[in-house]
Write a protein that binds this DNA or RNA. Structure first.
Lengths: 203, 203
DNA sequence: TACGAACTTGACCGACGGTCCACTTTATGG
DNA sequence: CCATAAAGTGGACCGTCGGTCAAGTTCGTA
């Protein structure tokens, strides 16, 4: 048991170089033009090194995602309200959705590459829903929905709400210069979902 | 102008053979195991023929999608209520969502292959949102939402609602033997969205 | 029947994700 | 400080895929 071997210094240096290179390439090219080999070249390493570090293309993207999502993760888990614990579920949900839309919007390239990686992998044991980052997001959203409205299918609604972060939709909005719309729309949606029930049996 | 040349008889025969072969392969293998070449082989046709007919992998999938979605399309456009015209928007929306969930559920393989085709294409000028089938579905949903609740962002909500048909979610539910959940959840969602407003400015 | 247009074909191409193993570098403990 | 084993590295190599193309074939028609 006890502590397993530390990552060697040169390995850590290369890991950082690879992540930075991938970051840079994704910032200026579409995900389908950022092959693992190009990332390796840009990082000044061999292709084999990248696979040794990250397992496969998905592993690389996942590592990048975790890096980017880290701040939000901590803010949600132990930061001040309304993002962190303490505020009522509806408030927290709205705050989280705004934050996660913002995060996604600022990292469309990465998100696209992540979806691309999932879609192109040969043996599809992994999916978007098994990515740690997504699992955390979904757990949080579903938890808040369940807390506020136990009678709803919180798990499913969580997936649906987070589905609005799919690259295609986000990129479309960005291209049309309307990055605000999604957050607004989701705020409305959350309000209607968690807000006071509209006298359900009126009809 | 005037009518362009008819498709030749042998070409039409091959087109059908290809579609049937693709259908059969998709019914029993994951989309990533159904390459264009395999479809061609199964149809007893050269690979080039498939590309000549359908342009690229996406074209093939799109043709299959249109075939499958045709009945629903007509039912919505000119069939009897509640699917067709005549019923109030909320009723029509719920009926349409149920039908489209059912259609998707019964064709997960095709849907998966379609998403796969979109994700793996090199020059991403095409997207899910530009597929004729999706455009029709979205137009219908967004139209109904707008009709019932003009103050909402119907276009965006349409995309979000239809986003719940993504393969990953649907397949997950099917694997867990809960194919009904999605339709139920969407019915709830539609009801809450289009139902009586919960006194929006209560806070 | 003859002719041009439509169609078919499969070898070929470039790119990709991923593997493999001979080689180099690092940390460690005597 | 050096010997040694474990960790890390690199890039040639593999199989597969979507897509192209030029040469050959078949069909509809005048």
């Amino acid at each position: 048991m006890a502590e397993q071997r530390q990552e060697r210094a040169d390995a850590a240096r290369n890991r950082r170089a690879i992540l930075r290179a991938a970051e840079a390439l994704l910032a200026e090219h579409g995900p389908d033009h950022v092959s693992v080999e190009r990332v390796a070249a840009a990082a000044g390493v061999g292709k084999g090194t990248v696979f040794h570090r990250f397992g496969n293309r998905m592993g690389l993207m996942r590592a990048l995602m975790e890096e980017r999502a880290n701040a939000l993760h901590e803010a949600v888990a132990s930061g001040p309200p309304p993002l962190g614990p303490g505020a009522p579920p509806e408030t927290r949900l709205i705050a989280f959705l705004e934050a996660v839309v913002d995060l996604t919007t600022r990292n469309v390239g990465l998100m696209a590459a992540n979806e691309h990686a999932i879609a192109t992998q040969r043996h599809s044991t992994e999916s978007r829903h098994t990515s740690p980052v997504y699992v955390f997001w979904h757990g949080h959203v579903a938890g808040l929905i369940a807390e506020a409205r136990p009678e709803l299918d919180a798990e499913l609604l969580g997936h649906i709400v987070l589905g609005s972060l799919h690259t295609e939709l986000v990129m479309g909005l960005l291209r049309r210069g309307e990055p605000e719309r999604l957050a607004v729309c989701l705020r409305d949606l959350a309000t209607r979902l968690l807000g006071p029930s509209p006298c359900p049996h009126a009809g």
